[in-house]
Design a protein around this nucleic acid. Structure first.
Lengths: 347, 347
DNA sequence: CTGTTAGCGCCTTCAT
DNA sequence: ATGAAGGCGCTAACAG
């Protein structure tokens, strides 16, 4: 009826005694530091394994003295989603400070590969870890790999660079997100048949392209009654998104669904309202912001696919910390889920 | 372009010097321990405030030596959801162990107030914190309050006892969960009008009652075309749930929606399939388990309202730890969201 | 290559 | 009511 989940506490000293060496040697082996005879290494490793010894994090933290430095490299523009992430990092300051963790924000033009790459290079050396909202481009990949080679821990945030050797990606599976959007548009549109519009920032952005891909997958296979119109590009800007959508709405009277892949939500909503069709068209978009929250409550938007920015901020920090300490990562905990947010489960 | 988020590191010694007292005295004040003249307390507190001093957690952890003991008091039956929580606690064992944390599982009959209360009383003294899946009953409330008075940190898990003085509740807002379920059933049923069935474990359970309340709210206000049938009670058992539902389905040919409030999902699904109506009826239930996952993939279930059991397990541990250390709680992080899970965003 | 040693910042007796 | 001093388990600098 009662069962205990944790083991007891051995220390470095115990291992040292058991392996017949000194503290320092065990420490060297533990951290793969050079200067130990291969044979000794083996003996020590054996002792560590045998007792499944785990060093006490608090003691290690205390002893190293030096605070750790992490950098967050983020887009410089006024992107509300990114601002939310920064906001949540700010809320963690007390948490960070009692752990002697320093995080520095670096704003940069993430859409210009060379600028981004330069910002990353500049960090080399004085950082233990960096989280970056990255563009998937060869020079960015190279910059990331250089950091990794220099011993810096790197996680990509929100947008991945799978071809690089980054240690971890903190963000959602965008293809699945697109599929989810598709299923929602299809199911909420009910029995109706008709046309479905897609507004994206740019199909050149990896995450947008992946979402559209997933969306189309579901549409084609599960909702044959709905036909998807060619993708509109609004560059994540309100004005432009509004214009292109307004034109499309004027042309097609039988649009029953709308998927807004990126930002520019304000403009999309305006086009819909101005056409007087905000109640008939099923409107699904991304992310919960002050704006989308309002649109959901008003019934203009029907659902938002969301990646919890607070979770992403905290996961990035925790993962960097775990990597720096050499601790295992709780993958399940750090995985970012695709949230479906409707009016009644607004966070 | 670069901004730093954390402060620099003062130590106890600095504060001691500044307040003109010794280390020990500052420590006493910091932990509200007795034996310090009120006047001295004030001086020390002032110095702490003035520098917004925060003790280094790692050092504190190291110095106290003694491991902390937490207990999880959970239902003894084979409830899959609870088993998931236990599973995730198990996955944390490495995390727990490097922090010298001990967690003990206590299985008990949470449906019998006196048994539950006794289990709680038994913990008094040898535990730093307890997480309990509680029944909202006077004797349970008393047991919780006793623990709190004895200095044990208490969090309620999944099911709250708001009238007690527990330090924290880790779980979802069940009324909002019910509303979400209602919105989903209503919207996914499309334009159709017809009847909606509800199967619950028991209306005596606080969480079930709250969910039903929220569900009815939404149905009444937003889906006048749908009429809700009287609640069926299946005691969270498969057989019983199947029987009562089968009978209801036979009686009403125009059921278009079904809300399964608690467990017994297997039985509910069977009744639906046996009646050959699993494709026409919109079926919404709770929690993602092996079973509901399968039903979602098969298209028998349309959506599951879920409270991430992994998140709940970890949040409970983190909150207990923060409470024990006197650290602030990251409320946003520990809040449990209401997840809508459909086929394409299955975690 | 390996061992010794002096802390890291705080908590906890034990004296005063 | 207050202070002094010895660790907690690990790291890192310095000897050997």
């Amino acid at each position: 009826m009662a069962e205990t989940l944790t083991a007891t506490a051995l220390t470095l000293k115990d291992i040292a005694r058991e392996a017949g060496v000194s503290l320092a040697t065990v420490d060297r082996v533990l951290h793969n530091r050079p200067g130990v005879r291969p044979d000794t290494v083996r003996r020590v490793k054996a002792a560590i394994e045998r007792n499944s010894f785990q060093p006490h994090v608090a003691a290690a933290e205390l002893a190293r003295g030096r605070a750790r430095r992490f950098a967050f490299v983020m887009p410089s523009g006024p992107n509300p989603f990114m601002q939310q992430i920064e906001g949540y990092l700010g809320e963690m300051s007390a948490w960070l400070s009692v752990r002697r963790l320093n995080v520095e924000m670096v704003a940069t033009d993430v859409f210009d590969p060379s600028v981004l790459a330069a910002s990353l290079e500049a960090l080399s050396g004085d950082c233990d870890g960096v989280a970056v909202v990255a563009l998937d481009h060869p020079s960015v990949r190279a910059a990331i790999n250089d950091l990794v080679d220099a011993g810096t821990k790197v996680v990509t945030l929100v947008s991945d660079v799978p071809s690089s050797r980054r240690h971890h990606y903190v963000g959602i599976d965008n293809i699945a997100a697109g599929r989810t959007a598709g299923a929602l548009v299809g199911r909420l549109a009910g029995q109706k048949s008709g046309k479905v519009a897609i507004v994206a920032g740019s199909q050149g952005l990896r995450d947008h392209a992946e979402r559209i891909f997933g969306f189309n997958q579901v549409m084609a296979s599960e909702f044959p009654g709905l036909s998807v119109l060619p993708v509109l590009e609004g560059r994540d800007e309100d004005d432009r998104s509004e214009q292109v959508l307004a034109r499309l709405l004027a042309k097609h009277a039988d649009i029953v669904g709308l998927y807004n892949v990126g930002a520019g939500t304000q403009g999309v909503a305006k086009a819909l309202s101005d056409a007087g069709r905000d109640k008939q068209v099923v409107f699904v978009g991304h992310d919960v912001t002050v704006l989308t929250r309002r649109l959901l409550l008003q019934g203009v938007m029907d659902a938002a696919i969301s990646q919890n920015p607070g979770h992403e901020a905290r996961a990035a920090v925790r993962v960097l910390l775990a990597l720096a300490r050499g601790e295992p990562i709780l993958r399940e905990q750090e995985k970012i889920r695709i949230d479906i947010v409707m009016r009644d489960n607004l966070p």
